[in-house]
Design a protein around this nucleic acid. Structure first.
Lengths: 247, 247
DNA sequence: CGACTAATTGAGTTGGATCAAAAAGTGTGG
DNA sequence: CCACACTTTTTGATCCAACTCAATTAGTCG
């Protein structure tokens, strides 16, 4: 039960402190860690959906195809995230999921969720909170995609990623590894790859973002946040208020 | 405990059959029905968030403002929907909510959710399922906003609304009341009001949609679905699979 | 080093935005 | 029932952010 090795416990602890029984229960969710290679599909739309995965290490993303062949990336998953939570209520996968890095995932069946519900009010609440947070992320992206300029979209996305990474990994400073091609970035932001390149150049010229291959440096985070109309309330304010009620 | 009068029970029953104890528990969520006038703000961003609302009758929507004064509508709520589920994990409201019609809402505090968690595995699961479904709706809209043409966005949205209305109200035929101005429609679809008007005209000219004030007629639903790349899997396939497991 | 893949740069096009004005609805009080 | 004020929708003209197409220049890696 070493917390170092369980990123899901680290993730959940972010929401509230857990009893050792709860930690034990969580550990079972991270059973059977499986290696999975970069570029592999974890699952495809239409596949039967009867389990979640926790992402122990590596990055992944979910996406959809459109009729004209365009692709839209919906979510980027980081270590500690739960993949496939959205499909809890569905019998089929609603989206494709592909690994960005060589990764380790742990499978756990939907019906284990019922054990969680039965055994721990706290974990149930945290599960709910995680769902809420995911919705908040989606909502934020939606506003961004619908209304911001390419420049602001990029700025916003970089701020968001930096913030998310810093939450589990304080001390990353003003740097981050962003293992995404510009084509993938385009598919996240609803832009063309060409325009992503131009936008990156423009942001660099203005000194907001520097980039060397997959390393991104943000010299002045608050300036970039301002540029992207980014505000971290939807990432930070999670679930604290509820805790008192449970105890 | 007349089901006719409780739209939340009707809504939940959509996911699975409920015991009378569960229905009773749900009824408490619809306590204290409150009238609220069309155009009123239910709440604003930053307001303390410690309750949900169930929408007993009328329509509502949630939205956000951007720096340039643009507005993005995030969700349209129909009778039976739960408003503010997303903020379960937050202490502040993340979005504004405004009533479209004269409506009736019922308040229930977040901590009542804990009673639900404690008392009914089924209702807990359904709550989760509702969250999943909301995410699915958001995801679908995200793809739509990011990648489709104005024409397809409109078509998609109309199909979605028709489908959602039909779920609680079979027999609406090929008509629907759409109490939204073109400006609101624009704010939903990420378009300008002017372009919404033009797009409506174009769809009418092609015989896909007819409109008289707030009445919309869809002569050939499947044609409109095809036009909007609409597929109802994200609305229909809800939660059935789980039921066996609980029983 | 050669063969790919990813990123950049340039030129030309376009879907939807903006601005402005006219037309159609809606509502209110006399 | 009409006149006046206000809001919503439509139409026309112009503009621009981002797209597409195409060619070049890095990177990456067996």
């Amino acid at each position: 039960m070493n917390e170092e090795i369980s990123c899901i416990i680290r993730h959940f602890s972010h929401y509230c402190s857990l009893s050792s029984g709860e930690k034990q229960l969580l550990m079972t969710l991270e059973d059977s860690p499986t290696d999975i290679k970069s570029g592999t599909l974890l699952w495809e739309m239409g596949d039967p959906a009867n389990e979640f995965c926790t992402l122990k290490s590596g990055w992944a993303y979910s996406y959809r195809h459109l009729e004209d062949g365009d692709r839209q990336i919906l979510e980027v998953f980081l270590p500690g995230d739960i993949i496939g939570l959205r499909e809890f209520a569905f019998s089929q996968r609603l989206e494709n999921v592909r690994m960005i890095d060589d990764s380790v995932v742990c499978h756990f069946p939907h019906k284990s969720m019922l054990d969680v519900f039965r055994q721990s009010l706290t974990l149930t609440s945290v599960m709910f909170a995680i769902g809420s947070r995911q919705q908040a992320l989606l909502t934020e992206r939606l506003v961004t995609l619908a209304r911001l300029s390419a420049r602001k979209k990029m700025a916003h996305f970089l701020c968001e990623m930096h913030m998310r990474l810093r939450q589990t990994n304080p001390g990353i400073g003003n740097q981050l590894r962003l293992p995404l091609s510009q084509e993938q970035l385009a598919d996240i932001l609803g832009l063309s790859p060409v325009h992503v390149s131009r936008t990156f150049t423009a942001l660099s010229e203005d000194g907001l973002v520097f980039r060397d291959r997959h390393r991104v440096t943000i010299p002045d985070l608050s300036a970039l946040c301002a540029e992207g109309e980014f505000n971290d309330y939807y990432l930070s304010d999670n679930v604290r208020p509820l805790l008192g009620e449970i105890a």
